[in-house]
Design a protein around this nucleic acid. Structure first.
Lengths: 239, 239
DNA sequence: CGTCGCTTGTGAACAGGTGCACAAAGCGCT
DNA sequence: AGCGCTTTGTGCACCTGTTCACAAGCGACG
């Protein structure tokens, strides 16, 4: 008997799909809070977040039973509970490696600071950029990477380097004790199992859109092209 | 009898999860092609793409039976087939709305051009930026949005504006006939059902990492804090 | 104080995706 | 030609996530 336990709770008690949506709820709730709205129903919150109300309720039920039947959820309280569940009550220092166009944009992105993240360091491989100040942070040279990471006890690294440098930078980050990496470089990073990597790839998203775009236009023009024998055909059971 | 048909093939023949991975395969294959490698096994390709070999084979099987048993897949041919399946054989013009830090980075991002996407227009709300040239494209004012979209027959729009402007811009894009939107603004966009929206949110990714980070450190410090009664416990069946 | 309407929280059915394991199929060597 | 090695393609069981539908719970109002 290998202790089956519930597979979802084996890792953390909160399913991955739910974790991925909590930040959205958090943002929407923030907007509601600013409007002075005291409570929201699952229906209202779900609509604003672009999900079904049942899904939202199930998501929230994984954090506990906050919410009052017949009334809804207290906005402030729910913000706090989601923040706590996500671990945003503690402040994580992050380092951004690579201050090209994208790194520049990230350093100036307000969304980081407002959610408990603090950009502790900017690092670039170009010596000429060292000393430059962006968003109030001085750029330092890649050679100092190890020193900087340990100095600030950074556990989250953001890679915004060219693809060719990404794996090397990643290895060095991991060697310094970084356990979470957000990768913007178009490469698949190899890391030990204990390290979490999330990737954001602009071009992949576009390609996915292109696929759906193709599907639409194929349907529209009625091209017999690939394989779109679709059209539902609800009641053509005539033999 | 409502024609059950296979749910996956109802929409396009290729499951969404597979479509999301095809661009990764494509990129890895591109690297292999540059190395002059003529063929790859599912094992080799899967390792480079960071997925299991069975999953890769199942993914590829959805496009057809390209690949030779005992040998593997012809790199060049597979590149072509995946490109075709994704609809990258035709060139999609895209417009980027909002040329702040992020829009600037996107305009200079080489990954777009190399995959059959062409940045046809840059648009910004700030009149002072109109006329400025970035990546060889002249920035034009938001007022001309409708004209530009129709002029270039753009069906894919990239929104890189501040959150406050995103919904408005999106509505205008949709009104002009744009059917796919890539949204970088931290907002949930409301669109008609016929329009595809994909969102990329930098801060959400970080928050997801923070969650896992929290989980790790909680386990390490042995804090009884939330609910982490983990550690697998393979054979502690002693009562 | 009882009743009524509204909203949460959840059990259960369902759908989609993943991974295993193996039969089918090609290649090269003898 | 035949044999054995390799690798694909896929049926099947599992598991995660989604959706439905409803009982339980809470407040308001008469």
């Amino acid at each position: 008997m290998p202790v089956p336990r519930d597979a979802a709770s084996r890792r953390s008690g909160i399913p991955d799909a739910t974790v991925a949506r909590l930040p959205i709820y958090l943002r929407v709730l923030g907007a509601f809070a600013e409007s002075g709205l005291p409570t929201v129903s699952s229906e209202g919150l779900a609509a604003a977040a672009g999900v079904g109300s049942a899904k939202l309720r199930k998501d929230l039920s994984h954090l506990g039973s906050y919410g009052t039947r017949g009334v809804g959820y207290d906005v402030e309280y729910l913000v706090y509970q989601i923040s706590r569940a996500l671990g945003l009550t503690q402040h994580y220092p992050v380092a951004i490696i690579g201050v090209g166009n994208l790194g520049h944009a990230l350093a100036n992105y307000a969304g980081f600071g407002t959610r408990g993240f603090q950009i502790a360091a900017l690092v670039d491989a170009d010596p000429r950029r060292a000393g430059e100040v962006i968003a109030g942070i001085e750029i330092r040279h890649l050679d100092e990477l190890e020193t900087i990471i340990k100095e600030h006890e950074i556990s989250i690294g953001v890679i915004a380097t060219p693809a060719a440098a990404a794996q090397d930078v990643c290895d060095r980050l991991v060697a310094c004790g970084v356990t979470s990496v957000l990768n913007f470089a178009p490469t698949v990073l190899a890391v030990p199992e204990s390290v979490d990597v999330r990737k954001v790839d602009l071009s992949i998203e576009l390609q996915i859109l292109a696929f759906h775009e193709q599907r639409k236009s194929a349907g529209l023009h009625g091209e017999p092209g690939v394989a779109v024998p679709d059209v539902v055909r609800t009641s053509v059971a005539s033999a």
